[in-house]
C-alpha cells in the first residue's frame, strides 16, 4: 500500500465572479512510479473535474506543466511522487496572468517576448535553398542548440526576484534568447542593435544576480553564464559607445 498523499491545491476561476482564491485539500493514494502528471490527472478524472491545469507532452519536452511545487517552480510531469514528502502544495506560477487554478498564460507572455527580442535570424542574405547550404562549424551548431533547448516553461521568470517586482523585466528566458542569436553567425545584428534591445534595466541591467533562474531551470540551461556574458558584453558596449560619441567627430 502506498502513502496517502495530502495535496493542497490553489483554486481560483477568474471567469466565475463568485470564485475567490483559496487552497483546496485532496487525498490520493500513491502508486508505483507516480508522477504529478498521473496524480493530477487522476484527481481531475476521479475526484474533481473542475480542476484546471495544463499538461501536453507529459515528457518534460514541451514546458506546459510548470507550476509552483512545494514553493519551487518546476515541471509537474517530471516530478516523481516518491521523491516528495507526503504533503504537496501546488500553486500557479507567479508573474504570469492566471487562467484558472494552476494554469497560467505563458503563451501570450512568450509571444510578446519573441516580438521584443525579435527572436529570428536577421540577415540581408538572399538564400536559394536549391543550392548548397552555407557551411557552419558543428561546434557552433551545438553551442546554439544548447541555448535553443529552452522550452519556455516560465520557471526562470516565476523564480526571478526582479520579474516578480517588475512585470516588464525581460527575464532569463528572453536574455538567453538574445544570447542564442548573438552566437549565431547567421544573424547579422550589430552589437548596437542588441544593446538597444537589452541594454537597460528592463534587460540585462535589471538582473540582480539572484540565480534562482539558474537553479530552477528544468533543462539546466547555462543561464548564469549567459547572463554574466551578456552583462559584460553590454557593459563594455555602453563604454565603447560613450567613448566613441564623446570623441570629436
Amino acid at each position: 500500500m502506498g502513502r496517502n498523499i495530502h495535496f493542497e491545491i490553489f483554486r481560483y476561476n477568474p471567469q466565475d465572479t463568485a470564485s475567490i482564491p483559496r487552497m483546496q485539500t485532496y487525498f490520493l493514494e500513491e502508486t508505483i512510479n507516480m508522477t504529478l502528471f498521473i496524480a493530477l490527472t487522476r484527481l481531475r478524472e476521479e475526484q474533481d473535474p473542475s480542476l484546471v491545469f495544463d499538461f501536453c507532452c507529459r515528457a518534460g519536452i514541451c514546458g506546459s506543466c510548470a507550476m509552483v511545487i512545494n514553493g519551487r517552480p518546476g515541471l509537474a510531469c517530471q516530478t516523481q511522487i516518491k521523491n516528495m514528502p507526503g504533503h504537496i502544495s501546488l500553486h500557479p506560477l507567479p508573474v504570469f496572468k492566471i487562467i484558472g487554478d494552476l494554469s497560467v498564460d505563458t503563451g501570450v507572455w512568450f509571444r510578446e517576448m519573441y516580438r521584443k527580442t525579435e527572436s529570428w535570424i536577421h540577415t540581408r542574405a538572399e538564400v536559394d535553398p536549391t543550392l548548397e547550404e552555407a557551411r557552419m562549424d558543428n561546434a557552433v551548431a551545438e553551442e546554439i542548440y544548447e541555448l535553443e533547448r529552452c522550452i519556455e516553461c516560465g520557471c526562470c521568470i516565476a523564480a526571478c526576484g526582479t520579474a516578480n517586482l517588475r512585470p516588464d523585466f525581460m527575464g532569463a528566458a528572453a536574455l538567453n534568447r538574445i544570447a542564442r542569436f548573438m552566437i549565431d553567425p547567421r544573424d547579422e545584428r550589430s552589437e548596437r542593435e542588441y544593446f538597444d534591445i537589452i541594454g537597460t534595466d528592463f534587460g540585462i541591467f535589471g538582473c540582480m544576480g539572484l540565480l534562482a533562474c539558474e537553479d530552477v531551470c528544468p533543462k539546466q540551461l547555462p543561464l548564469q553564464d549567459q547572463l554574466g556574458f551578456l552583462r559584460r558584453k553590454m557593459g563594455f558596449a555602453a563604454l565603447r559607445q560613450i567613448f566613441k560619441t564623446s570623441r570629436p567627430a
Binding site: W120, I121, T123, A125, V127, P129, T130, L131, E132, E133, A134, M136, N138, V140, A141, E142, I144, Y145, E148, D184, R186, D187
Partner: peptide
C-alpha cells in the same frame, strides 16, 4: 536547406 537559412542549428 531552407530551414538552415531560417535558423535551425543542424548538426
Amino acid at each position: 536547406r531552407r530551414l538552415a537559412a531560417w535558423g535551425v542549428p543542424w548538426n
